[in-house]
Design a binder for these strands. Structure first.
Length: 113
DNA sequence: AAACTGACGGGCG
DNA sequence: ACGCCCGCCAGTT
């Protein structure tokens, strides 16, 4: 389980600046397609204690339609969007991330334990 | 110990 | 596009 958190963090650390990915993509990439929620739990765990990567770009993880569903777990409810805008991520009129432009899909060997 | 709670996703109408 | 419901599963009550 804790190793699952590790794998999630490892993937998140790879998201390039100015790109985003979704909980579901990460979960599927790790072979746990139906447990996207656990990815959220893993990131929530980052916030507390910061035992692991305190510098993880967790703001680059959004839900499947590009909503910043985790914004309330950040220092303030707005930093998530601010950080993304600061790296050049564009938003649609309805406030969702423009996934068509910025979605990054995990691929490669980082899934290996 | 049982119930509730989500940083979720997919299917259906 | 939208709302609803169901499956999922570790934490918290």
């Amino acid at each position: 389980m804790a190793d699952f958190f590790d794998r999630v963090w490892r993937v998140v650390a790879l998201i390039p600046e100015g790109r985003v990915t979704t909980y579901g993509h990460i979960a599927r990439h790790l072979g746990l397609g139906r447990s996207a929620r656990l990815v959220g739990h893993a990131l929530h765990a980052v916030g507390r204690a910061g035992a692991r990567g305190p510098d993880l770009p967790c703001h680059r993880v959004v839900n499947r339609v590009g909503e910043l569903s985790g914004r309330l777990r950040f220092e303030t409810p707005t930093v998530m969007e601010e950080r993304l805008r600061a790296e050049g991520v564009s938003f649609l009129d309805d406030g969702r991330v423009d996934l068509a432009r910025h979605l990054w899909e995990p691929r490669g060997a980082e899934s290996l334990p």
